[in-house]
Design a protein around this nucleic acid. Structure first.
Lengths: 254, 254
DNA sequence: CCCCATTCTTGATCCAGATCAAAAGGCGGG
DNA sequence: CCCGCCTTTTGATCTGGATCAAGAATGGGG
């Protein structure tokens, strides 16, 4: 029951507790402004959002929101990494996405969240009460369009992930995963090659529909074949990205 | 190369060809009005949509839109069933969703479609040019909100499907699938129990990340254990839905 | 009504990845 | 600097579902 651990670790301090925070960074100097949902908002719109914004800080293992609970907050990730997952009754876990700076969290059509979100590292995020947020959305067509675009993007990503989970081999899955991390790092202005893996092997396997052991074995194989290099902390050097692409796509480039 | 078959069958007549259609049913008498995206639109808004609407009719195997092509149309399904899928280079296929009356098709944030959609049965759908549709959306906040709600719903469904693909056993997958079909049938006013399966075994396996043989074996087992009954055409009787739910959830109800 | 093509079921065997088991790192705390 | 815990790697074995291979329904066209 792999998850009892992290839940136990994280349940102590709920995100919702820290409504007030030591320091409220202004939106004007937001580091993720141009890659997040706030991009393309007018300064008047930003001001309206800023008025209802709270900054949340979390530590590894903290649960930000839990499946089944009332969906009454929305978040913008500013720093750190988050895993979003669903559990089966017996503890099996499927991570549906990892969130990084600039990502949006909390879209849920239902009354309740359909998933759990948990910090992997120290996290800083903007937090909005849903009711207030919706009021702002009503008044800002730009924001609503931005939300729709975000949802569409997530949908496309979800479809890619379904293809991966349903039809790719272990090697293809791991290769695709590394490339995805690299691409997303680039999108937020980080280098493509020594990528940072803020998550454990267990998280990678819960994301790819594999076991820890299989993920480890595939990484070892990639390392031995000179495609990647595994650096000390959670960092991996993509030595031959094109080889990785070939592996990710599988045969058929015949 | 399983798909060459269906593509061959469908490529003859593209949906986009039949811009004009023999008969344009008015929105006022639309059968799926209250379960589709048009629900909750004012009659003025409906009129604006109706003005730019075309009715498309398709036959089994017809491709409605293809991955990679410019995403310049949106659809509302009125009759029939559609499969939405992605392919790998070597022909492996993952169906990401089945569409039924009332469902929306065409959300794509990118310039191009990220998936292919193909009719499973005779299909009737409303078709809108994207540019015109977007103009209407701009003017109708209700419609935009409805689109966002639809996208959110799809996202939740996609997450469920990821859990299924990544972590469920073959039996759990098939049981979940049958229950999903039943639930959706109810939602559009059909009975819960003798459900109609408009798709072939190959489609079910491409949806569940299994092979045809495994799907067939699981169905046989469910039949032999008295949980379902397989009726002649593509119909299945859910004799013991609660047993099916137990199977779908897996162990853990311990 | 029969024929042929397609789909579905069933059986036999195989294998990628799971499971079980244990050693080897890494790292924070004392 | 050492200890103990957690994570990762590696090895041995097992198994659920894939693959390979026939049959048995089904159904549409002539």
């Amino acid at each position: 029951m792999r998850h009892e651990r992290s839940l136990a670790g994280g349940a102590k301090r709920r995100a919702s507790d820290g409504k007030s925070s030591a320091y409220e960074p202004p939106c004007g100097s937001c580091e993720v402004r141009e890659i997040g949902i706030c991009d393309a908002l007018s300064s008047a719109e930003i001001a309206r959002l800023e008025a209802i914004k709270t900054t949340t800080r979390l530590r590894p293992g903290d649960v930000i929101l839990r499946e089944g609970e009332p969906a009454d907050h929305l978040f913008n990730v500013k720093k750190g990494a988050i895993k979003v997952y669903k559990l089966l009754a017996d503890g099996r876990c499927q991570i549906t996405s990892f969130l990084f700076p600039g990502d949006f969290l909390g879209l849920a059509h239902d009354q309740n969240y359909a998933f759990t979100a948990e910090a992997l590292t120290d996290v800083e995020a903007c937090r909005f009460a849903r009711t207030q947020y919706e009021a702002v959305v009503q008044a800002c067509p730009t924001l609503e369009r931005r939300l729709l675009a975000t949802a569409s993007n997530e949908l496309v990503a979800a479809q890619d992930q379904m293809l991966l989970l349903g039809r790719k081999s272990a090697t293809e899955k791991v290769a695709s995963f590394l490339l995805m991390l690299s691409k997303r790092a680039v999108k937020r202005g980080e280098p493509a090659s020594p990528i940072t893996l803020p998550m454990k092997r267990a998280d990678i396997s819960d994301y790819l529909g594999l076991t820890i052991e299989t993920v480890s074995r595939v990484l070892t194989r990639l390392k031995k074949s000179g495609v990647i290099r595994i650096l000390n902390p959670g960092r991996i050097d993509l030595l031959r990205p094109s080889a990785l692409s070939d592996l990710a796509a599988g045969p058929g480039g015949a």
